[in-house]
Design a protein around this nucleic acid. Structure first.
Length: 459
RNA sequence: GCCGGGGUAUCCUAGCCUGGUAGGGAGCAGGCCUGCUAAGUCUGUGUCCAUGGGACUCACGGGUUCGAAUCCCGUCCCCGGCGCCA
């Protein structure tokens, strides 16, 4: 009996998978294919075992037989059986691969609480926090996106500046020179912004470790075997940087090395849940995002991020996703930037996840909330692929696959964009969110209350 | 990068030269024994397919062979030494 939910569904109730695939807008026929391949694989497996049994029996007799003639006869028999076995083995290997490919093509089962829909406009708003400043020309689109929810807001007449304009004018972020030496979507962070970047990371790490998450700086590269366990193969071409002539990929998020660290391990029930707070650079090609968020540092090839990750007992993952989004709320609310929490619709989140909440922060210049945090329950999807199981004790029969969850805490550069836009003062200085100040205080050259544009600084 | 040593089940370890059911110990679980505990003793202890059982598993992948933990080739990882290095 397999405890992997997708295999269980294949054998007991494939309809679950058809519905789930349909809700995501993915291929449904693959389910039929997987059922067929699984049945055929099991039959082949059983037939082969019988042949192997016969061969082993004969091979053992050969060892015991002294009589020359009798022995030769047995060897002949064994030869024939061996040939049959090897044919069967080849067939099984082929079948095993196609079966597994089919199974792994099926996306994680969409949770029942996930709303229907294929794009981000169909995300279900769950909660609004803070009072966004809305430019009068953005009001209509804002009210539409709020979907009936009553949200407190402040109407402004003047068009808000984009983070790009603010960073250009302040001289604290240089994307032009970065483009010269590396290309678009790179940046130099300068002076006060460097401290803000580090302050954000420290604030995130400090708070998250208070919730029992163990801080972790992971490898920034993973090999193919580990990477194909944590995510979908198709993500490779689109988003990952690969090192030349080496079996190594730059990580797109610390979620990946954190998840992969327990690959092929059996965890003991008493050590669950395992909670990690990862801090790492993230590298993303952003292929397919041409034309989107091209200016500034909202969408870049490289950024730092603090991430939380949980390995837990399967019975507890649905509690954990609620706890994690609550932690997000507790971390973001004090930063005093308006945000909302949404549940992503069935067709608009990663196939690895069963359900995803996004925390979206207000971007005054765009007149809408944008994704800053993604919080997912991946149930047993990653743990099956990475073979991470749990047992009463190590070495005892396993009871199934653990569940994994992950959530952004703070992605630093993107977070800087919303701080710039929401906190810029009439004189051009940027108010630093209060909770970050203690982390900057010990540093002599760090700003103490406002981030100051270069031209306003005393030399 | 070079030389040497290694990778056996939850852990430790034997077996490898000389191919023929992977042995022992520890831990853990259960049974027996015991007034109780300890000791003793027996059984179990990974994965998969089936429910009479069977197959697979000695880092990974090939090869030789009727038969490979064992012999041959390749790869990865770990340890020690040398070299290089922030």
């Amino acid at each position: 009996m397999s405890a992997w939910s997708i295999l269980t569904a294949i054998r007991e109730d494939p309809e679950i998978l058809r519905v789930s695939q349909q809700r995501r807008g993915l291929d449904i026929d693959i389910v039929e294919e997987a059922v067929r391949l699984d049945t055929e694989w099991r039959k082949t497996r059983t037939d082969l075992a019988e042949l192997q049994r016969q061969r082993n029996q004969v091979a053992q007799q050969i060892g015991k037989t002294k009589d020359k003639e009798k022995k030769d006869q047995l060897i002949q028999q064994s030869k024939q059986l061996s040939e049959k076995v090897s044919v069967g083995e080849q067939r099984l290997v082929g079948l095993e691969k196609t079966r597994l490919d089919a199974l792994r093509t099926i996306a994680n089962i969409v949770h029942e609480s996930v709303p229907e829909g294929i794009d981000e406009t169909e995300a279900r708003p769950e909660k609004y926090v803070g009072k966004p400043r809305i430019w009068k020309d953005h009001l209509d689109q804002f009210l539409e996106s709020a979907q009936e929810k009553k949200v407190d807001y402040e109407l402004v007449d003047e068009q808000p500046k984009s983070h790009y304009d603010i960073s250009e004018e302040s001289g604290l972020i240089d994307t032009a020179r970065a483009a010269k030496v590396a290309g678009s979507r790179f940046y130099y962070l300068i002076d006060d912004i460097v401290w803000l970047d580090l302050g954000l990371a420290l604030y995130a790490l400090d708070n998250i470790t208070k919730h029992g998450f163990k801080p972790l700086i992971p490898p920034n590269m993973l090999n193919h075997a580990a990477y194909s366990g944590v995510t979908d193969i198709t993500a490779f071409e689109d988003s990952l940087y690969k090192l030349e002539n080496q079996d190594l990929y730059l990580i797109a998020t610390s979620e990946h090395p954190i998840a992969a660290q327990h690959m092929n391990e059996v965890l003991e029930i008493k050590e669950l849940p395992l909670r990690y707070a990862g801090y790492s650079p993230c590298y993303r090609k952003e292929a397919g995002a041409h034309g989107k968020d091209t200016k500034g540092i909202f969408r870049v090839h490289q950024f730092s991020k603090v991430e939380m990750f949980v390995f837990c007992h399967p019975d507890e993952s649905w509690d954990w996703i609620e706890k994690m989004i609550a932690i997000e709320e507790a971390i973001w609310t004090p930063l005093n930037i308006p945000f909302r929490i949404v549940t992503l619709p069935s067709g608009d989140f990663s196939r690895v996840a069963s359900k995803t909440y996004d925390l979206e922060l207000w971007m005054p210049s765009q007149g809408r909330y944008r994704e800053f945090v993604s919080c997912s329950n991946c149930t047993d999807y990653q743990s099956y692929r990475l073979n991470i199981r749990f047992a009463e004790k190590r070495g005892h029969p396993t009871k199934g696959f653990v569940h994994t969850l992950n959530s952004t805490v703070i992605a630093t550069t993107r977070s800087i964009t919303t701080i710039l836009e929401n906190n810029v003062q009439p004189d051009g200085r940027i108010l630093i969110p209060k909770p970050l100040l203690p982390y900057l205080k010990p540093i002599e050259s760090a700003p103490d209350k406002y981030i100051t544009p270069m031209h306003m600084k005393k030399k």
